[in-house]
């Protein structure tokens, strides 16, 4: 019951946010929402299923271009283009499944890196489809006659998609599928002896992860309104990876925190001219030093009963309320 109230309050706050926030902040929030979805996708694959990927920008790109092209070229409605982009990207996830069935850890990471590099190389050269290096303008999203042309409207769009994707992720993680991912990650042999098919669940993991990232990509193209191949490089793959690891591996709330943090950090730093990169790097190092298991690991640690005693009183009250 308390959980429900809490969620209600959080939702109300998020829904009312446009009343208090500047349009630019809402835009950043929408962008952060896009990354929340991508990070959830990566976390399901890497955090839960234990399959390293540093090539997720490739999936983001495929999702972004697919949805943009479906609307621009085929005239499909935008609300259809995003799930279709997710599905198509999900199918491309099987490309990585092939190496993943043979490779582990760092070897798989290189295969995914290669996938990202390949997508980044093919996109600008496929001029007929993608418009080459200079990129392409994405048509405005129109929902049943209502043009989503303002940051506020795009914020609501993103918020609703993020909530749906979070719920789906929670269902997956709490089901036999999520358990099968973790089982294969930690004890491959025992998992198989429990009847879990390695091939099948790796396939699920890659499909789901690519699907999520494809949805994120589709949303990205409409939020930003313009896409070009240069955005989907190794740096972006690493960004999504950092969001996942800083937030907390195998944690859904962690993914949200990680994506929000790294989406807003550059904007908090925009005042420090010339210092941004330094502080950004230092922030990464500090988070790793003080929160080795990510933001969510940190929260979990400080809400353990023995640590709770040491928290300041008001904070303790909040934690105790949340736990019910």
């Amino acid at each position: 019951m308390r959980r429900l109230i809490l969620w209600g309050v959080a939702l109300c706050l998020l829904a009312l946010a446009p009343l208090f926030l500047r349009s630019y902040t809402l835009y950043i929030l929408s962008l952060a929402g896009v990354y929340v979805i991508a990070t959830l996708g990566l976390n399901l694959l890497t955090g839960y299923a234990g399959q390293l990927s540093i090539g997720h920008a490739g999936f983001l790109a495929i999702g972004a271009y697919t949805s943009a092209l479906l609307v621009a070229r085929l005239g499909l409605p935008f609300w259809l283009s995003i799930p279709l982009a997710g599905l198509l990207t999900g199918l491309t996830g099987f490309i990585l499944l092939v190496p993943a069935l043979r490779l582990t850890a760092i070897y798989l990471a290189i295969a995914t890196l290669g996938f990202g590099a390949a997508v980044a190389e093919i996109l600008p050269r496929w001029t007929a489809l993608t418009g080459g290096y200079q990129g392409m303008k994405v048509p405005k999203a129109v929902l049943f006659g209502l043009a989503l042309d303002s940051d506020v409207k795009l914020y609501y769009l993103t918020l609703s998609i993020v909530i749906v994707m979070l719920l789906l992720a929670r269902n997956i993680v709490d089901s036999k599928m999520g358990r099968a991912f973790i089982a294969l990650r930690d004890q491959e042999r025992a998992a198989q002896a429990c009847g879990i098919s390695l091939t099948r669940y790796k396939a699920y993991a890659f499909f789901i992860s690519a699907f999520y990232t494809g949805i994120a990509g589709g949303l990205y193209s409409f939020v930003v309104g313009y896409i070009s191949p240069g955005e989907f490089d190794l740096a972006k793959s690493l960004l999504i990876f950092m969001m996942m690891a800083l937030g907390g591996m195998a944690s859904l709330p962690g993914s949200v925190l990680g994506a929000l943090f790294l989406s807003f950090l550059p904007h908090w730093l925009s005042g420090f001219r010339g210092l941004q990169q330094f502080i950004y790097g230092a922030a990464l190092v500090l988070v790793v030093i003080f929160m080795p298991y990510g933001f969510w690991g940190f929260v979990r640690r400080w809400t353990m009963p023995d640590k709770l005693e040491r928290l300041p009183r008001p904070l303790r009250a909040v934690v105790e309320f949340v736990r019910g």
Partner: peptide, 10 residues
């Protein structure tokens, strides 16, 4: 791994 990235940025 992330920390080494951060050190690189610094």
């Amino acid at each position: 791994f992330i920390a080494t990235l951060g050190i690189g940025m610094i």
